[in-house]
Design a protein around this nucleic acid. Structure first.
Length: 244
DNA sequence: AAGAACGCCAACCGCACACCG
DNA sequence: CCGGTGTGCGGTTGGCGTTCT
């Protein structure tokens, strides 16, 4: 499947490259108003000369209100390293367990800092995780993809000698962890790693629209009203950030 | 001071999966 | 069941800023 299909959008006449603050505002305003719907149709409706994919990426990696900006803490880096040992290059999985961080961000961090740092470490020490770490990652990941397609089991089941039952995260119920609970289905071992690391996490900016991503879950009119007020706050915040 | 080399990160590309008619 | 379409993911790249020579 997927081969030979038409490109996601007609790229003729579409903007590429860096986003302008105007485009950002348009996108945020649109999503603020209508929520995340059809990405392909979104740019047209929002008056953006971008392809839907580009809009989605921009939203997820940059404009989303619950994005955590700034440097990664050491704890976060350790978490990433440990999750990477368990999951391989499945950045979205790793990201789903690091609230406020995007897969792209983590991927970049890994490729720039962590890989190098780990390489330096590993040259000195024995490779305890040779079956699960960077060595043979490619094949490992491919193999896991195959496994996952049928059973949704993660690399843990192959790197460990037993097959861990798939579970949905069911950690604590505070605000910052809900994302993980909602987003990821991970094995208990991974959850353990996450929980070990999450004691440090304090949301830097749980923006007014932080829940907006999950707006579809809003049910009562009270909740909706509150959310609208929050959304306005977020929009104002964003406009300020973008110096508009 | 200027150019080269390097590092970082936002964004793009193509593939694969999920869903729907 | 099958084909088409939308979405998500991971790899890669381009461009900009910083550091080095």
């Amino acid at each position: 499947m997927g081969r030979g299909r038409a490109p996601c959008c007609d790229k003729v006449g579409l903007n590429k490259g860096a986003w302008t603050s105007e485009e950002d505002t348009k996108l945020v305003a649109f999503i603020h108003k209508h929520g995340r719907g059809n990405w392909r149709a979104l740019p047209k409706q929002a008056g953006l000369l971008r392809c839907g994919k580009s809009c989605r990426l921009r939203w997820i990696n940059y404009l989303r209100p619950d994005i955590k900006r700034g440097n990664f803490t050491e704890e976060e880096e350790e978490t990433i390293i440990r999750l990477h040992e368990q999951l391989g290059n499945r950045w979205s999985k790793i990201a789903s367990c690091l609230p406020g961080r995007t897969d792209n961000e983590i991927k970049n961090l890994w490729n720039t800092h962590l890989k190098r740092r780990l390489g330096a470490k590993q040259t000195g020490s024995s490779r305890a995780h040779s079956s699960c770490g960077k060595v043979g990652d490619e094949q490992h990941h491919k193999q896991e993809s195959i496994n996952e397609s049928s059973s949704s089991s993660s690399c843990i089941s192959s790197s460990e000698s037993h097959v861990a039952p798939r579970v949905t995260c069911s950690g604590p119920h505070d605000e910052t962890k809900n994302r993980c609970i909602e987003d990821c289905s991970i094995e208990p071992e991974v959850w353990g790693v996450v929980m070990d690391e999450f004691s440090f996490f304090v949301p830097p900016y749980v923006g007014p629209m932080a829940e907006g991503v999950h707006r579809s879950t809003a049910t009562t009119s009270e909740e909706k009203a509150t959310r609208e007020i929050e959304d306005d706050g977020w929009l104002a915040y964003l406009e300020e950030e973008l110096q508009l």
